[in-house]
């Protein structure tokens, strides 16, 4: 990074308790203008609570937080005039049509009807909802609702977009659709923060990943650097009825790491070709030989699988 861009979010020792439980535990991070940051972690890692503090919807227990130069939560309301928020669950107004939703929401920002007349058609086009302008929310598919939620968050031309698990519960095609929309927004210079528990989503979209578990930051860098620094380059994943027998037959090899997660056996190393070939003589064994990815990093750092964490 050459000249540092101005920070959009500054968090220092950010902590939050629910009763006795520390759900967010001493987070420190800066997010700079134009970054696309993914906060990645299992359910209960503290991702949503972190986002809620960030937008000023819940006060931190302790620590310092500023967004766009505003002290949070004190100046939260004023700050929210300059950001967009997409919630985990759509909370579109089901009594209204698509356009009416955008008009009402613009009203919350104090935007003039005249300005909205220009802004709304542009947002409908961005969300590919121009044909549905006068449809009721109940007539929209899940993907359309999600796109409308994102469009609604852009009504005020925000400098920062915050999304809480934007593609959870959507089918794969729709997910790609949302990803395209977000990538387009980033190309236009928008700073974006999203939470997700999908590795693929984080790896594809985010220039930077903050990996969280149990309220703490485990790692914070680009997906490539995370993978390079924390994990061997190749992975052999073996499962099937005979997998365990195969493993026992192996002579211990240097420069390799082996782990069991659930029914699968994972071998990590620089070159696992010999191991792969050893599988040829086994029946009832399935395997994948691949490059290491974020999920492997997560597994190593937390010692558990993301999905059953």
């Amino acid at each position: 990074m050459n000249s540092p861009r101005p920070p959009v979010v500054v968090a220092r020792q950010l902590t939050k308790y629910f009763g006795e439980k520390r759900v967010v535990d001493g987070l420190c991070f800066d997010i700079r203008q134009g970054e696309f940051v993914g906060i990645l972690g299992p359910n209960g890692a503290g991702k949503t609570t972190t986002l809620r503090m960030l937008v000023g919807n819940t006060p931190p227990g302790s620590g310092e937080l500023s967004v766009l130069g505003y002290a949070i939560p004190v100046e939260g309301r004023t700050m929210r005039a300059r950001i967009g928020v997409v919630p985990q669950q759509d909370n579109l107004d089901i009594d209204f049509t698509v356009v009416e939703n955008l008009r009402i929401y613009g009203g919350y920002f104090g935007l003039a009807e005249r300005a909205l007349k220009v802004r709304i058609p542009w947002l409908l086009e961005l969300a590919a909802l121009t044909d549905k302008a006068h449809a009721r929310i109940g007539q929209l598919s899940g993907g359309m609702k999600r796109r409308l939620s994102i469009a609604r968050a852009l009504i005020n031309e925000p400098e920062l977009l915050v999304l809480d698990e934007p593609t959870t519960g959507l089918d794969p095609q729709v997910r790609h659709n949302i990803w395209n929309m977000l990538r387009q927004l980033q190309n236009e210079g928008l700073t974006i923060i999203l939470t997700t528990h999908y590795m693929e989503e984080a790896e594809r979209l985010c220039g930077r990943i903050i990996l969280m578990d149990r309220g703490r930051i485990l790692a914070d860098s680009s997906p490539q650097v995370l993978i390079r620094d924390h994990i061997e380059p190749h992975v052999l994943e073996v499962h099937g009825a005979n997998a365990e027998n195969w493993r026992r037959s192996l002579v211990r090899l240097e420069g390799q790491r082996c782990e069991r997660v659930g029914e699968s056996i994972f071998h990590y190393g620089d070159d696992l070709e010999t191991l792969v070939r050893s599988l040829d003589s086994w029946e009832g064994v399935h395997y994948v030989y691949r490059r290491a990815n974020l999920e492997d990093v997560f597994l190593k750092l937390t010692g558990r699988d993301l999905h059953d964490a």
């Binding site: 937008v55 919807n57 939260g76 309301r77 004023t78 700050m79 929210r80 005039a81 928020v85 919630p87 669950q89 909370n91 579109l92 107004d93 089901i94 929401y105 919350y108 920002f109 104090g110 968050a153």
Partner: peptide
């Protein structure tokens, strides 16, 4: 149920 208020609180309303 509809979480309409959550939407409002994500806008510059207290």
């Amino acid at each position: 149920v509809l979480k309409t208020w959550d939407g409002m609180l994500a806008a510059p309303l207290s």
